[in-house]
Amino acid sequence: GLPPGWRKIHDAAGTYYWHVPSGSTQWQRPTW
């Protein structure tokens, strides 16, 4: 699974990851 606080988001551009507490997003899968 993903580290705490991360969500996987799907949209028209593809899949990305959202860090809910900080509001940051990234294309790379977050690592622990």
Rank of each mutant, 00 (worst) to 15 (best):
G1I: 11
G1F: 11
G1Y: 11
G1V: 12
G1P: 13
G1R: 13
G1A: 14
G1T: 12
L2P: 06
L2G: 01
L2F: 03
L2Y: 04
L2W: 03
P3T: 00
P3G: 03
P3E: 02
P3S: 02
P3I: 01
P3N: 00
P3F: 05
P4Q: 06
P4L: 07
P4S: 06
G5R: 01
G5A: 01
G5W: 07
G5I: 01
G5H: 03
G5M: 03
W6Y: 01
W6T: 01
W6F: 02
W6P: 00
W6M: 01
W6D: 02
R7D: 05
R7L: 14
R7I: 15
R7M: 14
K8H: 09
K8L: 14
K8Y: 10
I9M: 13
I9T: 03
I9E: 04
I9L: 07
I9V: 14
I9F: 05
H10M: 14
H10S: 14
H10R: 12
H10A: 12
H10W: 10
H10E: 15
H10K: 13
D11Y: 08
D11K: 07
D11A: 13
A12S: 12
A12Q: 10
A12M: 09
A12D: 12
A13W: 14
A13D: 11
A13F: 15
A13L: 14
A13N: 14
G14L: 06
G14F: 07
G14Q: 07
T15Q: 07
T15A: 10
Y16D: 00
Y16P: 00
Y16K: 06
Y16L: 08
Y17G: 00
Y17V: 01
Y17K: 02
Y17N: 00
W18R: 09
W18S: 07
W18V: 15
W18T: 09
H19D: 02
H19W: 04
H19E: 00
H19F: 04
H19K: 04
V20T: 08
V20Y: 11
V20M: 11
V20P: 05
P21D: 09
P21K: 09
P21N: 06
S22Q: 02
S22P: 03
S22I: 02
S22G: 03
S22D: 04
S22L: 04
G23R: 03
G23P: 00
G23L: 04
G23H: 03
S24D: 11
S24E: 13
S24R: 15
S24K: 15
S24H: 15
S24F: 15
T25D: 03
T25S: 09
T25F: 15
Q26H: 05
Q26F: 05
Q26G: 02
W27Q: 12
W27L: 13
W27I: 14
W27R: 14
W27G: 06
Q28F: 10
Q28E: 15
Q28V: 09
Q28G: 08
Q28D: 14
Q28H: 13
Q28P: 05
R29E: 11
R29S: 08
R29Q: 10
R29P: 13
R29K: 13
R29G: 04
P30S: 02
P30W: 02
T31V: 12
T31D: 11
T31Y: 11
T31L: 12
W32T: 10
